[in-house]
Structures are given as C-alpha cells and as structure tokens.
C-alpha cells in the first residue's frame, strides 16, 4: 500500500464517527415514520371512510366521536 493510500484510509477512518452519527440520525428519522403511518391509517379507517357520507350533521357527529376517541 502506498503512502497516499494509507493517508486516504486514515482520512476515511477519521471520518467514520461523524458518518455513524449522521446515519444514526437518519435511522431515527425513519423510525419516526412508523407513528405517522399509524396516524394516517387511523385517520383513513376511522374518519375519512365514514366522512364519505357527506351529510353535514353526520360529519359533525363523526368528527366529535373521533375527537372523543383520541
């Protein structure tokens, strides 16, 4: 291995902790999508499908019931 290669490898190694920190942060961002998916699923199944009724009184009743159930 040439001196140049060794220096390059050392530079890469020195940068590893920062790369790990960045990766950890990105992984955490992805984990947070789970709650968003669950919330959207809940909204679609509990609220949007019943709201298809499009009846104003019915909509008010469905919204109130959803709010009480949160």
């Amino acid at each position: 291995m040439s001196t140049h290669d060794v220096k390059h490898r050392l530079r890469q190694l020195r940068g590893l902790p920062e790369r790990v920190r960045a990766l950890e942060a990105e992984v955490q961002e992805n984990r947070q999508l789970n709650r968003r998916i669950a919330e959207l699923t809940d909204i679609v199944t509990e609220l949007l499908i019943p709201l298809e009724a499009r009846d104003r009184d019915k909509v008010a009743e469905i919204l109130e019931r959803y709010k009480q159930g949160l």
Binding site: R31, L33, N34, R35, I37, A38, E39, T41, D42, E46, Q68, G69, L70
Partner: peptide, 19 residues
C-alpha cells in the same frame, strides 16, 4: 412485528376502552 401496526393496535385499544 411492525411498530406502525403496534401503534395502530394501541389506538384501537384506547378507543375501545373509552367506549
């Protein structure tokens, strides 16, 4: 085994318990 499903299940449970 998916956190999103686990959370959705928990929402369903809390709704049932409120009822």
């Amino acid at each position: 085994t998916s956190p999103a499903d686990i959370i959705t299940e928990s929402y369903r449970i809390s709704r049932a318990m409120r009822d």
